[in-house]
Amino acid sequence: MKVKLIEPLNVSHELIKELSEPIKALGHEFVYYNEKTTDNDELIERSKDADIIMIGNNPYPKEVIKEMDSLKLINVAFTGVDHVAVDDAKKKDIKICNAAGYSDQAVSELAIGLTLDIYRKISDSSPLIGKEIKDKTVGIIGTGNIGIRTAELFSAFGAKLIAYSRTEKDEAKELGIKYVSLDELLSSSDIISVHLPLNDNTRGFLNKEKLEKINDNAILINCARGPIIDNEALANLLNQDKIAGAGIDVFDMEPPLPKDYPLLYAKNIVLTPHIAYFTEESMIRRAKIAFDNTISFLKGDPKNIMK
């Protein structure tokens, strides 16, 4: 088979070479493109005649997928796959796998970092009095791996933990998390941290009506996906002092943001340009997971296949 890594993975060429050796040892071809492109024609050119392509968070749209005749696997070196035309891939019986778990620690740490920045006015270098996380009620929305890891870190600071999730997990309960309704979480949390995937059920999940249920002294952290929240409504509520602060790493589109984007002008907000996943350690982890996914597929034992 022909395997093509069609964008860089933010790791050294030496590591890419090392990780690709088992592919070649199995008798397969490996091709690596070390520059990113968003041009559909170039993506088609890079992907043609590949059996497996490997990508990161670069969009892989339906216009590209429809031109693929031999493609069997889209190996996404990322947790979310919402930047891939999944339905179009399924129609062509192309499998999709992801690198789940590579950024759990990185994302969780940034959620804590954004909270500390807001509470202690770090970015502002402000002399105003700050707050401590200890004894605050932290509401975790979504108790997947990242949600639970974030809860563990907040717990280490002495916070009280509540959560809302479609599925209640024993692991979360053992950590001391109490599951509550979404309305109770929004109204009773001092800190709300969002950890949901983006799909048809979660797009616009925290709409204007739900955001208005957040208590005036609470702060909202989003290191998940931007479209989960109505960000225009969030900006308005921040500017009206109806929400005390927000730490936002994800938006309705990838940065750079348009100059009129509402959150750019909101009060008491800390913005980072979608970097929660982006650490030296997490980039190495995701490269290793992605190549392991490829090798497992080549051996007839696929891993991390998205349903």
Rank of each mutant, 00 (worst) to 15 (best):
L15H: 03
S20V: 10
E21M: 15
E21V: 14
P22K: 02
Y32P: 06
Y33F: 15
D39A: 11
D39E: 05
D39M: 07
D41C: 01
E42N: 06
E45F: 11
E45R: 14
S47D: 02
D51G: 09
M54K: 01
I55K: 00
Y60M: 10
K62Q: 15
E63S: 15
V64E: 02
I65M: 07
M68D: 07
L71C: 10
I74T: 08
N75Q: 09
N75P: 10
V76Q: 09
V76A: 13
V81I: 14
D82H: 15
A85M: 06
A85N: 08
K90E: 08
K92W: 14
D93N: 14
D93I: 07
C97Q: 03
C97Y: 09
N98K: 05
A100F: 13
S108V: 08
G113W: 06
G113A: 05
I118G: 05
Y119G: 05
Y119D: 00
S126P: 06
P127A: 03
L128K: 13
K131F: 15
K131I: 04
I133S: 08
K134Q: 12
D135T: 10
K136M: 12
V138M: 11
G147S: 04
G147E: 00
G147C: 12
E152K: 14
E152M: 12
S155P: 01
G158R: 11
A159V: 06
K160S: 04
Y164Q: 00
L185H: 04
S187M: 07
S187A: 12
I192W: 04
N199A: 09
N199R: 03
R203W: 01
N207Y: 12
E209Y: 08
L211F: 12
E212T: 09
L220Y: 12
L220E: 02
I221T: 13
C223T: 15
P227K: 00
P227A: 01
A233L: 06
A235W: 13
N236E: 14
N236M: 11
L238F: 13
I243R: 11
G245M: 01
A246G: 10
G247N: 06
G247Q: 03
I248F: 11
F251D: 00
M253C: 10
E254P: 00
P262T: 04
V270P: 03
L271T: 04
P273S: 02
A276F: 06
A276Y: 08
E281Q: 13
S282N: 09
M283S: 10
M283I: 02
K288H: 10
I289Y: 15
I289E: 08
A290G: 12
A290V: 13
F291I: 01
D292W: 05
T294G: 05
T294Q: 00
K303D: 00
I305H: 11
I305E: 01
M306Y: 14
K307I: 04
